[in-house]
Design a protein around this nucleic acid. Structure first.
Lengths: 352, 352
DNA sequence: GTGAAAGCGCTAACAT
DNA sequence: ATGTTAGCGCTTTCAC
């Protein structure tokens, strides 16, 4: 087994072109200090021969260990952001032995000062690459600018800013995911009434993914169920009593509503009420994201569908992209990567 | 940027233990020819210090190029097996420069002799790892035994044999995918009649994925729509005229059937008929696999849902697993990997 | 049983 | 602008 098929090396190229290894290396890395003539001779030969550099030798010789910084909100157990941390753990495995490590920077997503402090720490650590999810729009823009100035590549996940300096983005298409939500809720059956449950809060400066999703949802409904009356109901996520009261009042006033959607990851908040009121078998309920509590409700049959956006995969791919850049100088082919919106039912969720 | 954090090397170990690099290496690789005393001194120091070998140096020094053999049916364009070839292409990119290459062995899935010939070729090439999808059950078992004897690790994709020697399996849960198909077809609405369209053919010795899927489907229906009359309709995939005739006869005899399922990748075969007869807006049609022709029909709205099984990802993960084993001696944590069954609708299919 | 030394393919510093 | 050279950490041969 294991053939010893000797592949071409820069030494071969040097020999064939009558130049030295050093010059070939300069060409390969666009380091300049090479005559146009030599440059072209080498390039031509490389293309003809299909030479590929030996990654192991390259990495060994340059012998550096690199670090990727991950800037994400602190996560309570079972929350949306924990799904991303799982991705970080997974990515870290892949990096093992490749001379790459991950530095994690956390902050309180409701405290902009903690975010700023984390940014400062991050920059002070002088990483070779950064992955982050833009939550504080303005301050992330500031961070982006500082990273650009330092020549540090950065990748957005979950959502992106249009700052033109990011190397890549991994996330889902939000408008489309709202549209899909409409389809899953209302396609193929008459729907006269529906309710969108929303979070009542002051969202000072925070990016809100649900706005775009709601737009997609409304457009679907406008087209396919134009006569459907769509209500909006606001709840306080941190006050179970408020949730109960609001839902109760709503369903007392609208006893015929059987279609419910929520555009954030908190569909689990209403599950308790639905089950207490015995509505679970009559309602079609669509939510987002495979948090443990959401998945439980899906498997019980209370939640009808979850639309999930592969948070861990977003992180893994972001880190992969950064390590390709850092180690192999490979740029991503595309900049924006819209990952699949997975439709989860009680019968396929176990395989995700 | 880029820290030069020097990690520990075997040289350090040699210095600290008062031995030489050579002896340390012998210990690290259990090559024997080392006194018990030295062996233990080294082992102890390694554990204390948490030394990790530098993979790049190791691979560079041993300087071998390895090969992974892929044994898959030849693929007509647009067919199920072509999706796997895409995975091979993708995997090959990742291997580039890692000293790993892929050898492809094809065969005619309806000609067992061509399969046997391919097996012989494969073994003659003495690869370092093998990935294959078991179609000819008996002969794949033979291959598996020969690979075991040769000490060559092999990975199954798409389906697996219970031969106890395979290193890993990547595929979907078939029974569950059939059950899911039933759910997508019949949940949440009354269904009195349904038809399963099947392929009429002689399946000599071939593994048939649809058997298990059908079982899952029937179990779902038995539980949730016990009164539904389920017909089976057989068509010849290579004879469009036969398809038209059979479908026509069926729908003339059962004009009220509005629910259709197919458990292989050929749902596209019936699309033409459905559209000609103008049934597309009245039928709920579920098929498997994201072949281009299936996806087109999904996007037009004729096919309602596709259940897809990530064929390319199966291949990529299989190759990844093999290369981890071959290059880094890493064994997979799990043996069997059931990949998600993706539910594709016209509104999320573009993101897959 | 152990040590010394050459060399894997590449990088980078230093000559020229 | 180009060539030379000394490693990077490990494997492997060969001598002792």
């Amino acid at each position: 087994m294991s053939g010893k098929k000797r592949l071409m090396t820069i030494k071969d190229i040097a020999l064939q072109t009558g130049l030295s290894k050093g010059t070939v290396d300069r060409v390969l890395h666009n380091r300049g200090e090479v005559s146009k003539q030599s440059y072209e001779k080498v390039m031509r030969y490389i293309e003809e021969s299909g030479y590929t550099p030996n990654v192991h030798a390259s990495l060994l010789a340059s012998g550096q260990s690199h670090r990727i910084a991950a800037l994400l909100p602190n996560h309570e157990p079972g929350s949306f952001w924990e799904l991303f941390q799982n991705g970080l753990d997974k990515a870290e495995e892949n990096l093992h032995g490749l001379g790459l490590s991950i530095l994690r920077f956390g902050y309180d997503q409701y405290d902009i000062d903690s975010f700023r402090a984390a940014c400062d720490e991050l920059l002070a650590s002088a990483p070779d690459g950064v992955v982050t999810a833009p939550l504080f729009l303005n301050d992330t823009t500031v961070l982006a600018r500082r990273l650009q100035e330092a020549g540090i590549p950065y990748v957005y996940i979950d959502s992106k800013l249009e700052d033109d300096g990011y190397m890549a983005y991994f996330g889902t298409a939000r408008y489309q995911s709202g549209y899909l939500c409409g389809y899953l809720l209302a396609d193929d059956r008459p729907v006269n009434q529906a309710v969108i449950v929303r979070i009542r809060r002051d969202k000072n400066r925070l990016s809100d993914p649900t706005v775009t999703r709601r737009a997609g949802f409304m457009d679907f409904m406008l087209e396919y169920a134009p006569d459907c009356r769509i209500s909006n109901l606001f709840i306080d996520p941190n006050d179970p009593e408020d949730i109960r009261k609001e839902l109760e009042a709503f369903f007392d006033a609208h006893p015929d509503v059987r279609h419910i959607a929520m555009f954030n990851s908190r569909i689990h908040l209403i599950v308790d009420f639905i089950e207490r009121r015995g509505l679970q078998d009559q309602c079609r309920i669509i939510g987002f994201d495979n948090l443990a509590s959401n998945v439980e409700a899906l498997k019980r049959g209370t939640v009808t569908r979850l639309i999930a956006q592969r948070p861990a995969e977003q992180v893994v791919m972001a880190i992969q992209t950064l390590s390709d850049k850092i180690l192999f100088k490979k740029d991503p082919v595309h900049r924006d990567h819209y990952l699949p919106m997975d439709i989860l039912t009680r019968y396929n969720v176990d395989y995700y």
